[in-house]
């Protein structure tokens, strides 16, 4: 851990709001990204990040300063967001019309509008929603957030082999679902 971060954390442990604010500023962006990945909705992501930082503020005393802060934070976030996700009975389904055409268009033009990006991000996360909890989390951390395997192990508390096998099954299913979608669209066209 960097000297700066260590100082910020120990000040936060002493109840220093200004230091905690710094900590929030440093980590809110990656936290929000992952929350959005898990929840697929801006408002939910926002609430999950807020809830996470409240928990961090309350639990910072139990943080082991000999460890890295980020995995500890991501772990709290992943649990918070996953609990929230369970609580949401059903997401409103995002229309998936013309996904194939969109992808083809984007491949040809080598670009996508923000709206299209958003749709794809949501599409993938909807597919990920159908995965078992562990597979989903490993998939989002590893393949969507591009985290290293070691990081994923720390956050999920799974060993190397478990991360590997969860990722393997998750990828297989995501691919299957995407292909199914392409098939369906081929039949409609």
């Amino acid at each position: 851990m960097s000297q700066d971060l260590q100082e910020i954390i120990s000040a936060t442990m002493n109840g220093d709001h200004a230091a905690f604010r710094k900590l929030v500023t440093m980590y809110q962006q990656p936290a929000y990204r992952l929350a959005f990945r898990i929840l697929g909705n801006e408002d939910e992501a926002r609430d999950a990040v807020q809830e996470t930082f409240i928990k961090i503020w309350q639990k910072i005393g139990s943080f082991d300063t000999s460890r890295e802060f980020a995995p500890w934070m991501f772990r709290i976030l992943a649990n918070t967001a996953t609990d929230r996700q369970r609580a949401i009975l059903r997401h409103p389904m995002v229309p998936m019309d013309g996904v194939m055409q969109k992808i083809e268009y984007m491949q040809q033009h080598d670009q996508a509008t923000p709206a299209e990006n958003r749709e794809l991000a949501i599409l993938i996360s909807r597919i990920a929603d159908t995965l078992p909890v562990k597979q989903r989390l490993v998939f989002l951390l590893r393949d969507m957030e591009g985290m290293a395997s070691a990081e994923v192990e720390l956050i999920t508390d799974l060993d190397e082999n478990a991360v590997k096998s969860n990722l393997y099954h998750a990828r297989k299913k995501v691919r299957e679902k995407l292909v199914q979608l392409f098939e369906k669209e081929r039949n409609i066209v």
């Binding site: 990204r33 959005f36 801006e42 923000p114 990006n117 794809l120 991000a121 599409l123 393949d143």
Partner: peptide, 9 residues
């Protein structure tokens, strides 16, 4: 594209 740094994230 879903990985990309889009504004929603």
């Amino acid at each position: 594209m879903a990985r990309g740094n889009n504004p929603e994230l």
